[in-house]
């Protein structure tokens, strides 16, 4: 289980190769919403930009490739030091 109450600290994740500092314990979808360089989290089947809708694992609009695993719902995942995120979905 992940400790989300460790207040204060930061961890570094990589988003499409860029290093991004995020609050320790943040959910990945939330961290990506904070990242100004991330306009859209993914492209739809017809190429439209999309971002999170439900925030709770229902809609799959926040999915990304995380540590090589495709179609991960980023709103269900806590950021971890060194996490590799690819927004190519």
């Amino acid at each position: 289980m992940v400790d989300r109450s460790a207040g204060g600290g930061e961890v570094t994740i990589r988003v499409d190769g860029r290093q991004v500092r995020v609050p320790a314990g943040a959910m990945l979808a939330s961290a990506l919403c904070n990242d100004r360089a991330t306009q859209a989290m993914r492209r739809s089947v017809t190429g439209q930009p999309r971002g999170p809708l439900c925030g709770m694992g229902i809609c799959f609009e926040c999915r990304a490739t995380v540590d090589g695993r495709p179609q991960v719902r980023t709103c269900t995942l806590v950021c971890r030091e060194g996490m590799e995120v690819r927004l190519d979905g």
Binding site: A26, M27, A29, S30, M41, L53, G55
Partner: peptide, 18 residues
Amino acid sequence: LPGVTGVGGLQALVKGGF
């Protein structure tokens, strides 16, 4: 469009650190 979310959805994202 990105930036259009659910009401509870936005609250969940904010609790998640947005």
